[in-house]
Write a protein that binds this DNA or RNA. Structure first.
Lengths: 130, 130
DNA sequence: TGAGTAATTAACCTATCGGTTAAATATAGA
DNA sequence: TCTATATTTAACCGATAGGTTAATTACTCA
């Protein structure tokens, strides 16, 4: 995994790591605190490894306080990834417009009244629930 | 790779695949056209695989026209990833503010007057040379 | 100093990733 | 039908990702 951007996206491509980031978005936490919700599913060293991935990706900063390693979000990695994404904004917005327009044509004429909310109108998901 | 979001970030975590997306942002292209810039570095089947990853991640749509498979960007995957990132905007903007503020303290006092416009004033090495 | 807590490192295992070459499939057109 | 072009599939391979357990390091505090 050569470049920084690949490293950052790679780090984001794991649900455990994203959960750790979500936790950190609510405030600083030690390794043990971060690990706690996962200890049924995996060991502490596994979490340590995830944290190292996040740290190397510029997504987490780790400090030290006695035997604790307080972690916090690092905006740098997030910003780099977001900046890259930004160049494609026009594409995702345009396809969202198409989706919206489509939904309008489906929902429109006389409001067919969704009888039962069971059949999804199409597409693997992305369906606005109501 | 269970969930869609992980799949999408995983797909973005490769420079070849990002280059393919960049190419597609300039317009539709066939597999062969997409592969062409990489054929020194890798084989055609390798590119086919990358395209499948992008397709499965909801980042590319593949059609058919005779023996060609015209590809185009799929905004869906991009939108999903961007939406996820959005929740962290405050963090990357805040850390950017810190960076800006810091640069201001370094650059500030009497406007040192950029003598010659040769050395690029930035660079990934955030480190002030000199 | 020695016991207890927090976290990391080492060594190992398996599955997946990104690549290969060779063969197969899909389509057009003479 | 035969040939040429575009693309995919199959089978394989080495490296790495993500997990494990056991051992080690880093601290605090009595």
């Amino acid at each position: 995994m050569q470049d920084a951007l690949s490293q950052t996206f790679q780090a984001l491509a794991d649900p455990t790591r994203r959960a750790i980031l979500a936790r950190l978005s609510k405030g600083e936490a030690s390794v043990g605190e971060l690990a706690e919700p996962f200890l049924n599913e995996m060991s502490l060293p596994a979490v340590t490894k995830h944290l190292k991935v996040l740290e190397n990706a510029g997504l987490v900063l780790k400090g030290r306080n006695a035997q604790f390693r307080p972690c916090q979000l690092n905006g740098d990695g997030l910003r780099v990834a977001a900046n890259w994404m930004e160049q494609y904004r026009v594409f995702w917005e345009e396809s969202f417009d198409r989706l919206e327009a489509y939904l309008k044509t489906v929902a429109a004429p006389s409001r067919p009244k969704p009888r039962i909310e069971s059949k999804k109108p199409k597409g693997k998901s992305h369906g606005r629930k109501k």
